[in-house]
Design a protein around this nucleic acid. Structure first.
Lengths: 118, 118
DNA sequence: CGGTATCCTTTTAGATACTG
DNA sequence: CAGTATCTAAAAGGATACCG
């Protein structure tokens, strides 16, 4: 539900954007692209994310139908997270974004260095 | 700087993603797509954003080289915000994302309704 | 290993009032 | 109109310890 090209409050598109407009969510989804991953494996790949936040992020993605959680009864425990069909459809848009980021990250850092508040 | 398809901490792509992985930043950029906009005009289009947060978001986008701010000396004041060349290159990736959101927003809402914590 | 629980600090954001 | 200042509430996130 958009007017022209601008979001209106409370439209579905805006709600969905709120889900993915999250630093950790994007990084976690990207980490799950291609193959299922275990909790600790994801933490290692991402770097700098605490267990608490990773778990919380995964739960939120799970509750939104983007990720599945599969626990295998064993000692030590083994839990695998995997993108759902819906989650996989998000990877392309994310890749578009990360390609942009890789191409323009330096430009942004340069701009930040040069920026003088008026 | 990525290993396989996963972000490593502190790479430029990750930093750039942090800039755009922000609810308000995405919405504001989208609001500026197509034409320059005044402060109050943006606030009205977006809905539910306070002046303080809108100003802060615009400053951050400005400091990252994505938006320019042009103040015209007059009474009452007139300030226009416009995407930079760099900012305009971000609109396509954002559109890809919002198209996904519009197509899948309902599916996410449904999943959230059905979700039962294990 | 994959969590939870607790504590604490930082960040984010809303409301309101005021200014050039 | 566009913004700043102040205050406050709420959310996010890190650290650490503990549990099945």
């Amino acid at each position: 539900v958009t007017a022209g090209n601008v979001f209106l409050a409370d439209c579905p598109a805006r709600l969905a954007v709120e889900i993915i407009a999250d630093k950790w969510a994007v990084v976690v989804l990207y980490g799950l692209a291609g193959q299922p991953r275990r909790h600790g494996e994801l933490a290692g790949l991402i770097g700098g994310i605490s267990k608490k936040v990773l778990t919380h992020t995964l739960r939120r993605l799970e509750s939104s139908g983007l990720v599945t959680r599969q626990a295998y009864a064993a000692a030590p425990p083994r839990v695998e997270y995997e993108l759902t069909e819906l989650g996989r459809t998000l990877i392309d848009p994310i890749r578009t974004l990360t390609r942009w980021a890789e191409a323009n990250g330096e430009a942004i850092l340069d701009a930040q260095d040069r920026y003088q508040p008026a």
